[in-house]
Design a binder for these strands. Sequence first.
DNA 1: TGACTATGACTGACCAGTCAGTCATAAGTA
DNA 2: TACTTATGACTGACTGGTCAGTCATAGTCA
Lengths: 231, 231
Amino acid sequence: MTKKPIEAANPSAVRAHAATRASADGEEAPTSNRATRAAERRAAIVEAAMEEFIARGFAATRLDDIARRAGVAKGTIYLHFKDKESMFEELVRIVIVPVVARLTALPPPTGSVRDLIEAFAGNFLREVIGTRRGDLVRLIVAEGPRFPSVADFYYREVVSRGIAAMRALIEVGIARGEIREKDLARYPQILVAPAMIAVIWQSLFARHSPLDAQDMLRVHLDLIFGERRTT
Amino acid sequence: MTKKPIEAANPSAVRAHAATRASADGEEAPTSNRATRAAERRAAIVEAAMEEFIARGFAATRLDDIARRAGVAKGTIYLHFKDKESMFEELVRIVIVPVVARLTALPPPTGSVRDLIEAFAGNFLREVIGTRRGDLVRLIVAEGPRFPSVADFYYREVVSRGIAAMRALIEVGIARGEIREKDLARYPQILVAPAMIAVIWQSLFARHSPLDAQDMLRVHLDLIFGERRTT
DNA sequence: TGACTATGACTGACCAGTCAGTCATAAGTA
DNA sequence: TACTTATGACTGACTGGTCAGTCATAGTCA
Protein backbone atom coordinates (compact mmCIF):
# COMPACT_ATOMS: atom_id res chain seq x y z
CA MET A 1 0.00 0.00 0.00
CA THR A 2 2.78 2.39 0.89
CA LYS A 3 5.36 3.26 -1.70
CA LYS A 4 8.45 2.74 0.38
CA PRO A 5 10.69 1.54 -2.42
CA ILE A 6 9.95 4.56 -4.54
CA GLU A 7 10.56 6.93 -1.70
CA ALA A 8 13.75 5.15 -0.71
CA ALA A 9 14.93 5.40 -4.30
CA ASN A 10 14.00 9.04 -4.46
CA PRO A 11 16.01 11.15 -2.05
CA SER A 12 14.56 14.29 -3.60
CA ALA A 13 11.58 13.81 -1.31
CA VAL A 14 13.80 14.55 1.64
CA ARG A 15 15.48 17.42 -0.11
CA ALA A 16 12.17 18.91 -1.10
CA HIS A 17 11.03 18.57 2.44
CA ALA A 18 14.04 20.29 3.91
CA ALA A 19 13.81 22.95 1.25
CA THR A 20 10.20 23.62 2.15
CA ARG A 21 11.12 24.06 5.75
CA ALA A 22 13.99 26.36 5.02
CA SER A 23 12.30 28.41 2.34
CA ALA A 24 8.87 28.74 3.92
CA ASP A 25 10.01 31.90 5.58
CA GLY A 26 13.46 33.30 5.42
CA GLU A 27 13.61 33.85 9.17
CA GLU A 28 12.72 30.47 10.63
CA ALA A 29 15.56 29.55 12.98
CA PRO A 30 15.47 25.87 14.02
CA THR A 31 14.09 26.63 17.47
CA SER A 32 14.91 23.69 19.69
CA ASN A 33 12.17 23.89 22.29
CA ARG A 34 9.28 21.66 21.37
CA ALA A 35 6.46 23.82 22.68
CA THR A 36 7.88 26.83 20.88
CA ARG A 37 8.06 24.94 17.63
CA ALA A 38 4.47 23.84 18.00
CA ALA A 39 3.34 27.38 18.69
CA GLU A 40 5.22 28.64 15.65
CA ARG A 41 3.63 26.03 13.43
CA ARG A 42 0.22 26.81 14.77
CA ALA A 43 0.79 30.48 14.05
CA ALA A 44 1.98 29.66 10.55
CA ILE A 45 -1.16 27.61 9.95
CA VAL A 46 -3.39 30.40 11.22
CA GLU A 47 -1.63 32.93 9.03
CA ALA A 48 -1.82 30.72 5.96
CA ALA A 49 -5.44 29.81 6.62
CA MET A 50 -6.41 33.44 6.89
CA GLU A 51 -4.80 34.24 3.56
CA GLU A 52 -6.52 31.36 1.84
CA PHE A 53 -9.94 31.88 3.38
CA ILE A 54 -9.85 35.57 2.51
CA ALA A 55 -8.80 34.84 -1.04
CA ARG A 56 -11.24 32.00 -1.77
CA GLY A 57 -13.91 31.92 0.93
CA PHE A 58 -14.59 29.01 3.24
CA ALA A 59 -16.01 26.40 0.89
CA ALA A 60 -13.53 26.92 -1.93
CA THR A 61 -10.44 26.84 0.26
CA ARG A 62 -8.42 23.62 0.16
CA LEU A 63 -6.66 22.36 3.24
CA ASP A 64 -3.85 21.17 0.98
CA ASP A 65 -3.24 24.77 -0.02
CA ILE A 66 -3.24 25.97 3.56
CA ALA A 67 -0.78 23.24 4.45
CA ARG A 68 1.51 24.07 1.55
CA ARG A 69 1.44 27.77 2.32
CA ALA A 70 2.18 27.10 5.98
CA GLY A 71 5.04 24.78 5.02
CA VAL A 72 3.43 21.89 6.85
CA ALA A 73 1.86 18.56 5.95
CA LYS A 74 -1.90 18.32 5.84
CA GLY A 75 -2.01 15.92 8.76
CA THR A 76 -0.28 18.49 10.93
CA ILE A 77 -3.25 20.79 10.64
CA TYR A 78 -5.34 18.13 12.30
CA LEU A 79 -2.99 18.09 15.26
CA HIS A 80 -4.02 21.69 15.93
CA PHE A 81 -7.62 21.88 14.74
CA LYS A 82 -10.52 19.46 14.86
CA ASP A 83 -11.71 20.04 11.33
CA LYS A 84 -12.07 22.70 8.65
CA GLU A 85 -15.12 24.30 10.21
CA SER A 86 -13.77 24.66 13.71
CA MET A 87 -10.51 25.87 12.25
CA PHE A 88 -12.38 28.69 10.55
CA GLU A 89 -14.26 29.54 13.73
CA GLU A 90 -11.14 29.54 15.88
CA LEU A 91 -9.31 31.53 13.27
CA VAL A 92 -11.80 34.35 13.50
CA ARG A 93 -11.46 34.42 17.27
CA ILE A 94 -7.68 34.29 17.17
CA VAL A 95 -7.42 37.18 14.76
CA ILE A 96 -10.24 39.36 16.06
CA VAL A 97 -9.53 39.27 19.78
CA PRO A 98 -6.19 41.12 19.78
CA VAL A 99 -7.54 43.75 17.40
CA VAL A 100 -10.46 44.45 19.70
CA ALA A 101 -8.12 44.54 22.64
CA ARG A 102 -5.90 47.10 20.95
CA LEU A 103 -8.77 49.23 19.73
CA THR A 104 -10.56 49.31 23.08
CA ALA A 105 -7.37 50.28 24.89
CA LEU A 106 -8.46 53.88 24.48
CA PRO A 107 -6.21 56.74 25.48
CA PRO A 108 -7.21 58.39 28.76
CA PRO A 109 -10.35 60.48 28.24
CA THR A 110 -8.69 63.82 27.80
CA GLY A 111 -9.99 66.44 25.46
CA SER A 112 -13.21 66.64 23.51
CA VAL A 113 -15.43 63.79 22.41
CA ARG A 114 -14.48 64.61 18.88
CA ASP A 115 -10.80 64.14 19.68
CA LEU A 116 -11.61 60.81 21.27
CA ILE A 117 -13.55 59.61 18.29
CA GLU A 118 -10.93 60.92 15.93
CA ALA A 119 -8.25 58.99 17.77
CA PHE A 120 -10.38 55.90 17.58
CA ALA A 121 -11.03 56.39 13.88
CA GLY A 122 -7.33 56.84 13.32
CA ASN A 123 -6.58 53.55 14.99
CA PHE A 124 -9.32 51.84 13.05
CA LEU A 125 -7.95 53.26 9.85
CA ARG A 126 -4.49 52.00 10.58
CA GLU A 127 -5.48 48.64 12.04
CA VAL A 128 -8.35 47.63 9.81
CA ILE A 129 -9.20 49.62 6.69
CA GLY A 130 -7.25 48.40 3.72
CA THR A 131 -5.45 45.68 5.70
CA ARG A 132 -5.76 41.94 5.87
CA ARG A 133 -7.96 42.49 8.91
CA GLY A 134 -10.35 44.52 6.83
CA ASP A 135 -10.63 41.63 4.42
CA LEU A 136 -11.44 39.43 7.38
CA VAL A 137 -14.38 41.67 8.21
CA ARG A 138 -15.61 41.26 4.67
CA LEU A 139 -15.15 37.53 5.04
CA ILE A 140 -17.28 37.51 8.17
CA VAL A 141 -20.00 39.40 6.37
CA ALA A 142 -19.71 36.86 3.58
CA GLU A 143 -19.73 33.67 5.63
CA GLY A 144 -21.75 34.88 8.60
CA PRO A 145 -25.05 33.38 7.50
CA ARG A 146 -23.46 29.95 7.08
CA PHE A 147 -21.56 30.19 10.36
CA PRO A 148 -24.02 31.36 12.98
CA SER A 149 -21.40 30.76 15.63
CA VAL A 150 -19.06 33.17 13.86
CA ALA A 151 -21.78 35.75 13.38
CA ASP A 152 -22.76 35.39 17.03
CA PHE A 153 -19.20 35.74 18.20
CA TYR A 154 -18.65 38.76 16.02
CA TYR A 155 -21.84 40.37 17.19
CA ARG A 156 -21.07 39.70 20.83
CA GLU A 157 -17.40 40.65 20.85
CA VAL A 158 -17.22 43.38 18.27
CA VAL A 159 -20.52 44.80 17.13
CA SER A 160 -22.46 45.07 20.38
CA ARG A 161 -19.43 46.39 22.25
CA GLY A 162 -18.60 48.83 19.52
CA ILE A 163 -22.16 50.08 19.37
CA ALA A 164 -22.33 50.44 23.14
CA ALA A 165 -19.04 52.31 23.29
CA MET A 166 -20.06 54.65 20.50
CA ARG A 167 -23.41 55.26 22.13
CA ALA A 168 -21.71 56.22 25.39
CA LEU A 169 -19.44 58.63 23.58
CA ILE A 170 -22.32 60.13 21.66
CA GLU A 171 -24.24 60.68 24.87
CA VAL A 172 -21.32 62.52 26.40
CA GLY A 173 -21.04 64.53 23.22
CA ILE A 174 -24.70 65.48 23.41
CA ALA A 175 -24.46 66.34 27.11
CA ARG A 176 -21.49 68.59 26.43
CA GLY A 177 -23.19 70.24 23.50
CA GLU A 178 -20.68 68.99 20.97
CA ILE A 179 -23.30 67.01 19.11
CA ARG A 180 -26.62 68.53 18.10
CA GLU A 181 -28.54 65.61 16.72
CA LYS A 182 -29.94 63.99 19.88
CA ASP A 183 -31.39 61.01 18.05
CA LEU A 184 -27.91 59.96 17.00
CA ALA A 185 -27.56 58.16 20.32
CA ARG A 186 -30.27 55.80 19.17
CA TYR A 187 -28.32 54.86 16.04
CA PRO A 188 -24.60 54.72 16.71
CA GLN A 189 -24.51 52.69 13.49
CA ILE A 190 -24.65 56.01 11.65
CA LEU A 191 -21.41 57.08 13.28
CA VAL A 192 -19.68 53.89 12.24
CA ALA A 193 -21.27 53.34 8.83
CA PRO A 194 -18.74 55.22 6.70
CA ALA A 195 -15.89 53.31 8.31
CA MET A 196 -17.54 50.02 7.43
CA ILE A 197 -18.25 51.21 3.92
CA ALA A 198 -14.60 52.14 3.60
CA VAL A 199 -13.58 48.62 4.59
CA ILE A 200 -15.83 47.07 1.98
CA TRP A 201 -14.97 49.64 -0.66
CA GLN A 202 -11.28 48.97 -0.31
CA SER A 203 -11.69 45.26 -0.92
CA LEU A 204 -14.17 45.52 -3.76
CA PHE A 205 -13.80 48.77 -5.63
CA ALA A 206 -10.41 50.21 -4.80
CA ARG A 207 -9.12 49.42 -8.26
CA HIS A 208 -12.11 51.09 -9.93
CA SER A 209 -11.85 54.23 -7.87
CA PRO A 210 -9.65 54.53 -4.82
CA LEU A 211 -11.15 56.04 -1.70
CA ASP A 212 -9.39 58.39 0.68
CA ALA A 213 -10.87 56.85 3.81
CA GLN A 214 -9.16 59.25 6.17
CA ASP A 215 -10.51 62.30 4.44
CA MET A 216 -13.96 60.77 4.18
CA LEU A 217 -14.06 60.07 7.88
CA ARG A 218 -13.02 63.65 8.57
CA VAL A 219 -15.90 64.97 6.45
CA HIS A 220 -18.28 62.65 8.24
CA LEU A 221 -17.17 63.90 11.64
CA ASP A 222 -17.57 67.47 10.41
CA LEU A 223 -21.12 66.54 9.59
CA ILE A 224 -21.77 65.31 13.10
CA PHE A 225 -19.77 67.83 15.12
CA GLY A 226 -19.97 70.79 12.79
CA GLU A 227 -17.03 72.18 10.79
CA ARG A 228 -13.86 72.10 12.76
CA ARG A 229 -12.07 75.34 13.52
CA THR A 230 -9.08 75.23 11.20
CA THR A 231 -6.50 74.23 13.78
CA MET B 1 -25.48 0.59 -21.92
CA THR B 2 -29.11 1.60 -21.99
CA LYS B 3 -31.56 0.05 -19.60
CA LYS B 4 -34.47 -0.31 -21.93
CA PRO B 5 -35.84 -3.55 -20.48
CA ILE B 6 -35.78 -2.23 -16.94
CA GLU B 7 -37.50 0.95 -17.89
CA ALA B 8 -40.07 -0.89 -19.92
CA ALA B 9 -40.78 -3.07 -16.93
CA ASN B 10 -40.90 -0.04 -14.68
CA PRO B 11 -43.74 2.29 -15.52
CA SER B 12 -43.01 4.30 -12.38
CA ALA B 13 -40.48 6.26 -14.40
CA VAL B 14 -43.32 7.77 -16.36
CA ARG B 15 -45.41 8.32 -13.28
CA ALA B 16 -42.54 9.97 -11.43
CA HIS B 17 -42.04 12.17 -14.40
CA ALA B 18 -45.64 13.31 -14.54
CA ALA B 19 -45.70 13.73 -10.77
CA THR B 20 -42.66 15.98 -10.83
CA ARG B 21 -44.27 18.19 -13.39
CA ALA B 22 -47.54 18.40 -11.55
CA SER B 23 -46.23 18.83 -8.03
CA ALA B 24 -43.34 21.17 -8.70
CA ASP B 25 -45.51 24.15 -7.94
CA GLY B 26 -49.16 24.11 -7.07
CA GLU B 27 -49.94 26.84 -9.56
CA GLU B 28 -48.29 25.60 -12.72
CA ALA B 29 -50.96 25.58 -15.36
CA PRO B 30 -50.01 23.34 -18.28
CA THR B 31 -49.11 26.24 -20.52
CA SER B 32 -49.30 25.01 -24.07
CA ASN B 33 -46.91 27.32 -25.87
CA ARG B 34 -43.40 25.95 -25.94
CA ALA B 35 -41.56 29.23 -25.73
CA THR B 36 -43.68 30.26 -22.77
CA ARG B 37 -42.90 27.04 -20.98
CA ALA B 38 -39.21 27.54 -21.55
CA ALA B 39 -39.34 31.08 -20.21
CA GLU B 40 -41.21 29.90 -17.13
CA ARG B 41 -38.64 27.23 -16.46
CA ARG B 42 -35.81 29.63 -16.92
CA ALA B 43 -37.45 31.96 -14.44
CA ALA B 44 -37.92 29.08 -12.00
CA ILE B 45 -34.26 28.19 -12.31
CA VAL B 46 -33.18 31.78 -11.71
CA GLU B 47 -35.44 32.03 -8.68
CA ALA B 48 -34.23 28.75 -7.24
CA ALA B 49 -30.60 29.55 -7.94
CA MET B 50 -30.89 32.87 -6.16
CA GLU B 51 -32.32 31.22 -3.07
CA GLU B 52 -29.61 28.61 -2.99
CA PHE B 53 -26.71 30.94 -3.73
CA ILE B 54 -27.89 33.35 -1.05
CA ALA B 55 -28.29 30.57 1.48
CA ARG B 56 -25.00 28.74 0.81
CA GLY B 57 -22.73 30.98 -1.25
CA PHE B 58 -21.39 30.13 -4.68
CA ALA B 59 -18.98 27.31 -3.94
CA ALA B 60 -21.20 25.44 -1.50
CA THR B 61 -24.30 25.50 -3.68
CA ARG B 62 -25.13 22.26 -5.48
CA LEU B 63 -26.70 22.35 -8.91
CA ASP B 64 -28.71 19.30 -7.89
CA ASP B 65 -30.36 21.39 -5.21
CA ILE B 66 -31.11 24.22 -7.58
CA ALA B 67 -32.62 21.74 -10.01
CA ARG B 68 -34.76 20.11 -7.33
CA ARG B 69 -35.96 23.45 -6.03
CA ALA B 70 -36.83 24.59 -9.54
CA GLY B 71 -38.67 21.35 -10.23
CA VAL B 72 -36.40 20.58 -13.16
CA ALA B 73 -33.76 18.03 -14.04
CA LYS B 74 -30.15 18.99 -13.70
CA GLY B 75 -29.55 18.72 -17.41
CA THR B 76 -32.19 21.34 -18.05
CA ILE B 77 -30.12 23.94 -16.29
CA TYR B 78 -27.43 23.43 -18.90
CA LEU B 79 -29.91 24.20 -21.66
CA HIS B 80 -30.22 27.67 -20.21
CA PHE B 81 -26.77 28.39 -18.76
CA LYS B 82 -23.27 27.48 -19.87
CA ASP B 83 -22.00 26.44 -16.46
CA LYS B 84 -22.26 27.24 -12.78
CA GLU B 85 -20.07 30.31 -12.98
CA SER B 86 -21.80 31.99 -15.85
CA MET B 87 -25.12 31.09 -14.27
CA PHE B 88 -24.08 33.03 -11.20
CA GLU B 89 -22.92 35.97 -13.27
CA GLU B 90 -26.06 36.09 -15.37
CA LEU B 91 -28.17 35.68 -12.28
CA VAL B 92 -26.77 38.83 -10.75
CA ARG B 93 -27.48 40.74 -13.95
CA ILE B 94 -30.98 39.38 -14.26
CA VAL B 95 -31.93 40.31 -10.73
CA ILE B 96 -30.10 43.63 -10.43
CA VAL B 97 -31.08 45.27 -13.68
CA PRO B 98 -34.82 45.64 -13.04
CA VAL B 99 -34.18 46.91 -9.52
CA VAL B 100 -31.87 49.62 -10.81
CA ALA B 101 -34.39 50.46 -13.49
CA ARG B 102 -37.13 50.87 -10.92
CA LEU B 103 -35.00 52.85 -8.50
CA THR B 104 -33.67 55.24 -11.11
CA ALA B 105 -37.16 55.94 -12.42
CA LEU B 106 -37.25 58.92 -10.11
CA PRO B 107 -40.41 60.93 -9.61
CA PRO B 108 -40.36 64.31 -11.40
CA PRO B 109 -38.01 66.67 -9.57
CA THR B 110 -40.60 68.50 -7.55
CA GLY B 111 -39.99 69.76 -4.05
CA SER B 112 -36.82 69.94 -2.01
CA VAL B 113 -33.71 67.84 -2.39
CA ARG B 114 -34.52 66.29 0.93
CA ASP B 115 -37.91 65.18 -0.35
CA LEU B 116 -36.25 63.66 -3.37
CA ILE B 117 -33.73 61.77 -1.32
CA GLU B 118 -36.39 60.69 1.10
CA ALA B 119 -38.48 59.29 -1.71
CA PHE B 120 -35.44 57.46 -3.00
CA ALA B 121 -34.64 56.10 0.45
CA GLY B 122 -38.23 54.96 0.82
CA ASN B 123 -38.00 53.01 -2.42
CA PHE B 124 -34.69 51.54 -1.43
CA LEU B 125 -36.12 50.52 1.89
CA ARG B 126 -39.06 48.79 0.28
CA GLU B 127 -37.17 47.25 -2.62
CA VAL B 128 -33.93 46.20 -1.02
CA ILE B 129 -33.48 46.39 2.74
CA GLY B 130 -34.61 43.24 4.44
CA THR B 131 -35.61 41.57 1.16
CA ARG B 132 -34.13 38.81 -0.91
CA ARG B 133 -32.54 41.56 -2.99
CA GLY B 134 -30.74 42.83 0.06
CA ASP B 135 -29.31 39.38 0.60
CA LEU B 136 -28.12 39.48 -2.97
CA VAL B 137 -26.16 42.63 -2.21
CA ARG B 138 -24.54 40.84 0.68
CA LEU B 139 -23.78 37.95 -1.65
CA ILE B 140 -22.08 40.29 -4.11
CA VAL B 141 -19.95 41.69 -1.32
CA ALA B 142 -19.13 38.13 -0.35
CA GLU B 143 -18.29 36.74 -3.79
CA GLY B 144 -17.07 39.90 -5.46
CA PRO B 145 -13.37 39.22 -5.00
CA ARG B 146 -13.72 35.79 -6.59
CA PHE B 147 -15.91 37.09 -9.43
CA PRO B 148 -14.24 40.18 -10.77
CA SER B 149 -16.77 40.26 -13.58
CA VAL B 150 -19.58 40.46 -11.03
CA ALA B 151 -17.81 43.12 -9.01
CA ASP B 152 -17.12 45.08 -12.18
CA PHE B 153 -20.70 44.81 -13.32
CA TYR B 154 -21.98 45.86 -9.94
CA TYR B 155 -19.61 48.78 -9.78
CA ARG B 156 -20.47 49.92 -13.28
CA GLU B 157 -24.22 49.48 -13.14
CA VAL B 158 -25.03 50.21 -9.54
CA VAL B 159 -22.27 51.81 -7.52
CA SER B 160 -20.85 54.34 -9.93
CA ARG B 161 -24.30 55.40 -11.11
CA GLY B 162 -25.61 55.61 -7.59
CA ILE B 163 -22.65 57.67 -6.45
CA ALA B 164 -22.98 59.99 -9.44
CA ALA B 165 -26.69 60.47 -8.88
CA MET B 166 -26.21 61.17 -5.19
CA ARG B 167 -23.42 63.60 -5.91
CA ALA B 168 -25.62 65.51 -8.32
CA LEU B 169 -28.38 65.71 -5.73
CA ILE B 170 -25.97 66.83 -3.04
CA GLU B 171 -24.64 69.57 -5.28
CA VAL B 172 -28.14 70.87 -5.87
CA GLY B 173 -28.74 70.68 -2.14
CA ILE B 174 -25.63 72.71 -1.45
CA ALA B 175 -26.49 75.27 -4.11
CA ARG B 176 -29.95 75.69 -2.65
CA GLY B 177 -28.61 75.99 0.86
CA GLU B 178 -30.33 72.84 2.08
CA ILE B 179 -27.03 71.17 2.85
CA ARG B 180 -24.30 72.90 4.83
CA GLU B 181 -21.42 70.51 4.61
CA LYS B 182 -19.89 71.38 1.24
CA ASP B 183 -17.38 68.52 1.32
CA LEU B 184 -20.21 66.02 1.32
CA ALA B 185 -20.26 66.25 -2.47
CA ARG B 186 -16.82 64.67 -2.47
CA TYR B 187 -18.06 61.65 -0.55
CA PRO B 188 -21.58 60.70 -1.53
CA GLN B 189 -20.71 57.36 0.10
CA ILE B 190 -21.48 59.04 3.42
CA LEU B 191 -25.02 59.69 2.31
CA VAL B 192 -25.51 56.08 1.32
CA ALA B 193 -23.52 54.37 4.04
CA PRO B 194 -26.30 53.89 6.61
CA ALA B 195 -28.52 52.31 3.98
CA MET B 196 -25.82 49.80 3.14
CA ILE B 197 -25.21 49.11 6.79
CA ALA B 198 -28.92 48.49 7.19
CA VAL B 199 -28.83 45.92 4.40
CA ILE B 200 -25.95 44.07 5.98
CA TRP B 201 -27.33 44.40 9.49
CA GLN B 202 -30.63 42.86 8.49
CA SER B 203 -29.00 39.76 7.07
CA LEU B 204 -26.48 39.26 9.83
CA PHE B 205 -27.69 40.68 13.10
CA ALA B 206 -31.44 41.18 12.83
CA ARG B 207 -32.06 38.29 15.19
CA HIS B 208 -29.65 39.68 17.77
CA SER B 209 -31.10 43.15 17.69
CA PRO B 210 -33.55 44.30 15.06
CA LEU B 211 -32.91 47.62 13.39
CA ASP B 212 -35.55 50.17 12.46
CA ALA B 213 -33.97 51.08 9.17
CA GLN B 214 -36.58 53.65 8.26
CA ASP B 215 -36.12 55.56 11.48
CA MET B 216 -32.37 55.34 11.22
CA LEU B 217 -32.38 56.79 7.72
CA ARG B 218 -34.60 59.62 8.95
CA VAL B 219 -32.12 60.46 11.70
CA HIS B 220 -29.29 60.36 9.21
CA LEU B 221 -31.07 62.78 6.90
CA ASP B 222 -31.74 65.05 9.87
CA LEU B 223 -28.01 65.04 10.41
CA ILE B 224 -27.35 66.14 6.85
CA PHE B 225 -30.23 68.53 6.30
CA GLY B 226 -30.79 69.68 9.87
CA GLU B 227 -33.80 68.76 12.00
CA ARG B 228 -36.96 68.71 10.01
CA ARG B 229 -39.79 71.04 10.96
CA THR B 230 -42.28 68.69 12.59
CA THR B 231 -44.67 68.48 9.68
C1' DT C 1 14.99 4.13 24.26
C1' DG C 2 10.40 5.54 24.56
C1' DA C 3 7.04 9.16 23.90
C1' DC C 4 5.64 12.51 21.19
C1' DT C 5 5.18 14.88 16.66
C1' DA C 6 4.92 15.10 11.73
C1' DT C 7 4.17 13.20 7.26
C1' DG C 8 1.69 12.38 2.89
C1' DA C 9 -0.42 8.47 0.46
C1' DC C 10 -4.83 6.83 0.64
C1' DT C 11 -10.00 6.45 0.93
C1' DG C 12 -14.60 7.42 0.21
C1' DA C 13 -18.00 10.87 -0.36
C1' DC C 14 -19.39 14.29 -3.17
C1' DC C 15 -20.55 16.97 -7.25
C1' DA C 16 -20.09 19.62 -11.91
C1' DG C 17 -20.93 18.57 -16.20
C1' DT C 18 -22.36 14.98 -20.05
C1' DC C 19 -25.18 12.51 -23.17
C1' DA C 20 -28.08 8.63 -24.80
C1' DG C 21 -32.66 8.21 -24.69
C1' DT C 22 -37.77 9.82 -24.12
C1' DC C 23 -41.91 12.17 -25.27
C1' DA C 24 -44.95 16.21 -25.83
C1' DT C 25 -45.70 19.21 -29.31
C1' DA C 26 -45.22 21.25 -33.92
C1' DA C 27 -45.02 20.53 -38.82
C1' DG C 28 -46.27 18.04 -42.68
C1' DT C 29 -49.48 15.13 -45.39
C1' DA C 30 -53.62 13.16 -47.30
C1' DT D 1 -59.84 17.24 -40.03
C1' DA D 2 -57.21 13.05 -38.69
C1' DC D 3 -53.15 10.78 -38.95
C1' DT D 4 -47.91 10.45 -39.40
C1' DT D 5 -43.36 12.17 -38.92
C1' DA D 6 -39.81 15.47 -37.18
C1' DT D 7 -38.11 18.29 -33.64
C1' DG D 8 -35.85 19.58 -29.67
C1' DA D 9 -36.88 20.28 -24.74
C1' DC D 10 -36.22 17.54 -21.03
C1' DT D 11 -34.50 13.81 -18.21
C1' DG D 12 -31.35 11.50 -14.84
C1' DA D 13 -27.81 7.85 -14.57
C1' DC D 14 -23.15 8.16 -15.15
C1' DT D 15 -18.11 9.77 -15.25
C1' DG D 16 -14.03 11.91 -13.96
C1' DG D 17 -12.01 14.73 -10.88
C1' DT D 18 -11.62 16.88 -6.36
C1' DC D 19 -10.87 17.17 -1.54
C1' DA D 20 -11.75 16.53 3.74
C1' DG D 21 -10.23 13.64 6.85
C1' DT D 22 -7.42 9.19 8.31
C1' DC D 23 -3.63 6.47 9.71
C1' DA D 24 0.52 3.60 9.09
C1' DT D 25 5.05 4.99 8.97
C1' DA D 26 9.06 7.94 9.77
C1' DG D 27 11.37 11.34 12.31
C1' DT D 28 12.66 13.99 16.52
C1' DC D 29 13.53 15.23 21.11
C1' DA D 30 14.33 14.58 26.13
